[in-house]
Design a protein around this nucleic acid. Structure first.
Length: 888
RNA sequence: GGAGGCAUAGCUCAGCUGGUUCAGAGCAUCUGCCUUACAAGCAGAGGGUCCUUGGUUCGAAUCCAUGUGCCUCCA
């Protein structure tokens, strides 16, 4: 290679290498009995989604793990794909149609789905293309979609299987109703938000015409139209005289009873509770207990229906009615007062609409029964057979399972897998089966009828209109992407399942992680993955969650364009330990970019050397370079072990930091400076080769984190053939070396630099130094290095402090410099005295420890020995300083 | 209302089973340098009552308890 740009310009090569990787199929994996499998399934992003910072973090982590595994020679397979996201997608399509003047209600199911599919073909999966910009090394040939035919079939089969096992039932229950999406939601899809609302105090007059009244407090006055009782606490003395009496519902004058139940808190509101079974979960329970009627005044959109009786409100939105009825109540003299009140309101995760509790017939998974069949779902996590990172997530997991509730899996939507349940003309459930024909067969055999179709009346069934919850397909993901339901013994699933690592956000632990574990044990008798890495939430500097609505989220693609994918990846990872939120700021990405630039320039340096055979160099230089190389080899060895350790603990940001320091500090700041020829001089052949070899090792270690720049450099290091790539090169293993101890040399260099800084001396000005050391061999063999790096013209080994010199303590040794400057003796003395005072204080504390019989008796012997050593060292240092002080 | 987590430098975090790492890192800050790989850089420096108060212990950032403050999940 001839020319390298002076600064790092990622735009020049990132796309080029990504295409190369794809063309060479480096990311594609097939089952291979000779290789250890390493599998990750992507948390499938919504098919409607666009890449945001959360995806960036999540997928960068997965890519690091999978790239490293690939380089370690494992059969690495990262399966990508998308989720059909029933509510989100349907909402989007409905909105799009509305913009075109088409109402969903005017379309047949088939026509709507046609629109939805064409939308998906056009816009769906953009996010996967965006992931490529990031460098994600997914096996794109394996891209799956949760609603593609094969995966849908798996979902239907699972539903039928569960129904037959008695794990699924249909029941009339209070559900979370999303009036905008017009569908039921599971508890997990409801987000509770604190809102400022009003508490209305409303008079209900007694039915006996006495003019007496009770006052109730409610945040939802519109629901009085659905009231069926008033409830008080039986111990509440204020209301003892009212038990069994009746009151009139304002406006409607419907007579409703006053009942007594412990449920009512005496200290909230007025102590009188209105009971509205159709519109509140707790009221529903009360209604059941006292066999009260259920009056449902809301339709599926949250508008008041004819049951509300009062024509002023029928056909109007619940929030409009809330305002209006408050005014009307006031006019009619029913409103006592209103108060400001903070309460929690459930909203839909997908549409943001305020949730209405609504009584409806839905399909449910019997979770308790499921868990009883599969106790491993909890046990595997608690025993670390499935490891959570960070481990503290285990608590949350357990607590949730201990309080598990049934899972509502039906959704009143069209975009999704239609529930395979069949009903007769009267709406009775006849059978659960894949097709109508099968359902008829089941129905007939259940009735004990002969399977002689000709002799029977023709039977007409209709299928359940609802579809299944999206998560009812995503929980099968680790199995279904390998077609493990249709063909449980196929080569893919046998090789790649169970997968290794799952990387996901903590907030979907219950939605997804937990349920995948359930599915894994139920259908494969095996865990779906061995490790779960919970990422943090990406926030801005003010700790606000990044969101579109706040506009505080940078567009990841803009960031990549500006700083390069490597810089963005590094910026994201540098400060994101597992489970910790990441406070994102451009400056971190800048740091990543700067690091890339540093590497780039180091490579420019090495590539720019004029290389000549060793024979033309002085033995001194050759030897110094060999020493330097041995030293760096030692550092590399230690760092590789350290990095390996951090990977094992899934401490990726720390692993990256170790690599960062290894490259920047050890390699660039020390090693390269040690071997760098003076300007204009050539480099000897053997050192050049060694340096290049180190560089290659460093690039490999860094590659999982910064794939592009490492590939670019690796390709430029030597002649590479097509088909070769750093992404399939062997990951470095630590090699034990006999490394020289340069610690005293380095310390000397730093002390000299420090002195220069303090005295305002130019680094260009060379001076002589004097060393008084116990063991000269720690210095003498490395004189050349010391001179080169500290700009020292000569080194003298002495037994006493030279006249008029300044002392620099190097551990227990002494380094002296004779400066051609007037020495401020007083200041020097003070400095040394301070040092002595400090050391004496230190020794005192060590002495106290050693003088403590209990310490000597209880502490480990090696610890006591260490303390004694410390004391001896400190004493030696004090001695040195005192001698120096005497010299003044 | 219930449960869990966290609190260490200006910021983000390490500090594993108590004892030398006399409390560490990166970034930021400050000082001096445009020293021909890199100013997206180099060489240095400063900066912490380890949230409060108790307890256990020869010894506590580390273990226990209390309080305070923040966060998350659930109702």
């Amino acid at each position: 290679m001839n020319e390298l740009a002076k600064t790092y310009t990622p735009q020049d090569f990132e796309d080029k290498w990504y295409s190369y990787w794809l063309n060479q199929k480096f990311f594609h994996a097939e089952p291979n009995p000779d290789k250890e499998p390493y599998t990750i399934v992507i948390p499938p992003p919504n098919v409607t989604g666009v890449l945001h910072m959360g995806h960036m973090l999540n997928n960068t982590i997965q890519d690091v793990l999978v790239r490293r595994a690939r380089m370690q020679g494992k059969n690495a397979c990262w399966v990508p794909g998308t989720d059909h996201a029933s509510i989100a997608t349907e909402a989007k399509v409905v909105q799009l149609l509305r913009e075109q003047g088409i109402k969903k209600s005017d379309l047949s199911r088939e026509d709507f789905l046609k629109h939805a599919y064409s939308w998906k073909e056009k816009y769906g999966g953009i996010i996967l293309e965006q992931l490529k910009k990031l460098g994600a090394s997914c096996d794109w040939d394996r891209t799956r979609f949760t609603m593609e035919p094969k995966l849908s079939e798996a979902v239907i089969d699972v539903f039928i299987d569960m129904y037959n096992k008695g794990l699924i039932y249909r029941g009339l229950r209070m559900v979370n109703w999303d009036p905008q999406g017009k569908t039921a939601l599971s508890d997990e899809e409801v987000i509770h938000k604190e809102v400022q609302s009003k508490l209305y105090y409303i008079k209900y007059f007694m039915a006996d015409g006495s003019g007496d009244f009770v006052t109730i407090a409610t945040t939802r006055p519109e629901t009085i139209l659905a009231d069926v009782a008033i409830c008080v606490n039986p111990t509440d003395e204020r209301f003892l005289h009212l038990h069994g009496k009746k009151v009139l519902v304002p406006f409607l004058n419907r007579e409703i009873p006053i009942i007594a139940d412990e449920y009512v808190a005496t200290d909230f509101g007025t102590g009188c509770l209105k009971v509205t079974p159709a519109h509140d979960v707790n009221d529903y329970a009360l209604g059941q207990k006292y066999q009260l009627p259920v009056i449902d005044i809301l339709d599926e959109s949250g508008f008041l229906n004819a049951e509300a009786k009062d024509p002023r409100y029928i056909g109007k939105d619940r929030f409009a009615v809330r305002k209006q009825i408050a005014i009307d109540l006031e006019e009619a003299g029913h409103l006592v007062k209103t108060e400001e009140y903070k309460n929690q309101v459930g909203t839909s995760e997908r549409t943001g609409a305020v949730i209405e509790p609504r009584l409806s017939l839905q399909w449910w998974v019997d979770m308790k029964k499921f868990m009883a069949r599969n106790p491993q779902v909890l046990d595997a996590v608690m025993s670390d057979e499935i490891q959570f990172h960070p481990a503290k997530m285990k608590n949350t997991y357990k607590h949730w399972i201990d309080n598990i509730k049934d899972w509502c899996i039906s959704r009143q939507l069209w975009w999704g897998q239609q529930i395979p349940a069949w009903y007769d003309e009267k709406g009775n459930l006849v059978a659960v089966a894949k097709t109508e024909a099968e359902a008829i067969l089941i129905a007939k055999s259940k009735n004990g009828q002969e399977l002689d179709a000709s002799s029977q009346q023709p039977m007409h069934l209709h299928q359940d209109e609802d579809v299944l919850d999206t998560w009812f397909s995503s929980w099968l993901w680790p199995i279904s992407v390998f077609d493990g339901f249709e063909d449980p013994e196929n080569a893919d699933i046998k090789h790649f399942y169970p997968t290794n690592d799952l990387v996901t956000a903590p907030e979907i632990m219950f939605f997804w992680v937990f349920r995948m574990i359930m599915a894994g044990y139920e259908w494969r008798g095996e865990k779906p993955f061995s490790n779960v890495y919970y990422t943090g939430i990406v926030r801005d500097k003010q700790r606000r969650k990044m969101s579109k609505s706040l506009g505080n989220s940078p567009d990841p693609l803009d960031l990549i364009a500006k700083y390069g994918a490597d810089g963005v990846r590094m910026g994201m990872l540098l400060c994101s330990p597992a489970g910790n939120d990441i406070l994102f700021d451009d400056s971190q990405v800048e740091q990543g970019r700067n690091f890339a630039n540093k590497i780039w320039n180091a490579f420019r340096l090495v590539k720019g050397w004029e290389v000549k055979p060793d024979s033309g160099f002085s033995p001194e230089i050759i030897e110094a370079n060999q020493t330097s190389a041995r030293w760096f080899a030692g550092r590399l060895h230690d760092a590789l072990i350290d990095i390996e350790d951090k990977y094992k603990g899934y401490r990726l940001s720390e692993a990256l930091m170790s690599i960062y320091k290894l490259i920047w500090d050890d390699f660039c700041a020390w090693y390269l400076e040690m071997v760098k020829p003076v300007y204009g001089e050539p480099m000897n052949e053997s050192t050049y080769q060694t340096t290049l070899a180190f560089f290659e090792e460093l690039m490999k270690v860094l590659h999982p984190f910064m794939p592009f720049i490492t590939e670019e450099i690796w390709q430029n290091m030597a002649e590479r053939k097509t088909g070769e790539s750093i992404c399939v090169a062997h990951y470095p293993l630590p090699v034990k070396v006999d490394a020289p101890d340069l610690s005293r040399v380095f310390e000397s260099i730093q002390q000299i630099r420090n002195l220069r800084n303090a005295k305002g001396l130019s680094p260009k000005e060379a001076f002589e130094i004097y060393i008084k050391a116990k063991d000269i061999s720690l210095y003498a063999p490395h004189s050349f290095l010391l001179q080169k790096l500290a700009n020292v013209s000569a080194i003298h080994f002495v037994n006493a402090q030279p006249q008029g010199s300044t002392l620099l303590p190097i551990d227990t040794d002494e380094l002296f410099i004779v400066l051609n400057l007037a020495i401020d003796e007083a200041a020097e003395r003070e400095k040394i005295e301070k040092e002595i005072a400090y050391l004496e204080g230190f020794m005192k504390s060590v002495d106290a420890k050693l003088g403590n019989e209990k310490f000597v008796a209880n502490a480990k012997p090696e610890l006591v020995e260490k303390e004694r050593q410390k004391k001896a060292d400190a004493a030696a240092k004090i001695e040195v300083l005192k001698v120096s002080l005497a010299g003044f």
